[in-house]
């Protein structure tokens, strides 16, 4: 951790964004528990540093693919919490007009090529985005977020192999939160670290403390630089932990209270706050002020979502096809 080295602006931005991710998902969890939202919600509380550190190291013109646990990635890449919350409510004003929900938030303009409900499916999409930059001769970088469980999917191995062989400008960022739903990665993977798998593809594999936003930022900055120079992909493993269950309401019988407590003590936001204050670049009061502003922003997002209309039922048959939609849906 080194707030001084990274300066006030970046450190405070980290703080604001990480708090925003935390408060957004805490609010989503609360609303879901109150049955004000339907479907599935997968929160990333505890994993804020990897989302924010990674996206801050990217340019606005760079791209990401996200996962079912993707609210943090979208916020960190510039997503508007109002439009995100409206999407979680299934409202017409949401990013996807209510057609996608929590697991499918996308906005190509912001470089968010889509969250994904299929574990590991965003990885080849990121690879294809990297391939696009290579074919076009442009210098965007694409970062694929995925979890430890996705690293056991064929799509991970197939894409990382092609990206390595073709030196694609892609960053494979694994948020290793230890569990694929209930299954601990130790039980289904014989390598100690996901990053070790990089050796098999002859690319750099980097392990970082996923709860240290500065460490994530530095690793992604280096990987992006390498990608932009045409030197190919990097696999980064962020060791982290999700505080909530796989889904809201998950009884979490597969892990111990001690383990959860231990990881809560490694809270990335508390650590960042302490570091910022200790290094003297901002005061407790300033950080409290930021937190207050974010709270207001999240509340406003909830209000916006609640007041927004549901999509008109006629929308159910639109957007299936780009060309000749009506006829292609009719029969």
């Amino acid at each position: 951790m080194s707030a001084k080295k990274h300066g006030k602006e970046l450190s405070v931005t980290f703080y604001r964004e990480m708090v925003k991710v935390r408060l957004f998902d805490e609010k989503a969890s609360e609303l879901f528990t109150q049955a004000l939202m339907s479907g599935n919600i997968h929160t990333c509380i505890g994993q804020e540093a990897s989302a924010v550190g990674a996206c801050q190291a990217l340019k606005p013109t760079d791209f990401i693919t996200s996962t079912h646990r993707g609210h943090g990635h979208c916020i960190a890449k510039g997503g508007d919490v109002k439009l995100m919350m409206a999407e979680l409510f299934g409202k017409a004003t949401g990013y996807c007009g209510g057609k996608g929900g929590s697991m499918h938030i996308a906005n190509v303009g912001l470089g968010i090529l889509g969250a994904n409900g299929i574990v590991g499916a965003g990885i080849p999409i990121a690879g294809g985005s990297g391939l696009t930059s290579k074919i076009k001769g442009t210098n965007e970088v694409t970062l694929a977020f995925f979890g430890d469980a996705a690293s056991n999917q064929g799509t991970f191995h197939e894409t990382i192999n092609m990206a390595a062989a073709w030196h694609l400008p892609v960053i494979f960022l694994c948020e290793n939160n230890k569990y694929g739903v209930s299954v601990c990665i130790d039980r289904v993977c014989n390598t100690q670290n996901i990053a070790d798998r990089a050796q098999g593809y002859n690319i750099p594999g980097v392990i970082v403390d996923g709860n240290d936003v500065f460490a994530v930022y530095q690793a992604v900055t280096a990987a992006a630089e390498r990608a932009r120079k045409g030197e190919g992909p990097t696999l980064i493993e962020c060791k982290t932990y999700r505080w909530h269950g796989h889904y809201e309401g998950d009884p979490m019988s597969y892990r111990t209270k001690e383990e959860m407590k231990e990881w809560k003590e490694k809270d990335s936001i508390a650590r960042l706050r302490k570091e910022i204050v200790k290094s003297g670049i901002a005061t407790e009061a300033e950080l409290d002020g930021i937190e207050g502003e974010v709270k207001v922003e999240i509340e406003a997002a909830v209000e916006f979502a609640k007041e927004s209309p549901y999509p008109d039922p006629s929308e159910v048959t639109t957007d299936v096809y780009a060309d000749d939609n009506e006829r292609s849906v009719a029969r």
Binding site: G128, T132, I135
Partner: peptide, 9 residues
Amino acid sequence: GMSVGAAIR
């Protein structure tokens, strides 16, 4: 899958 990504782009 990569082609889907390229098409989106």
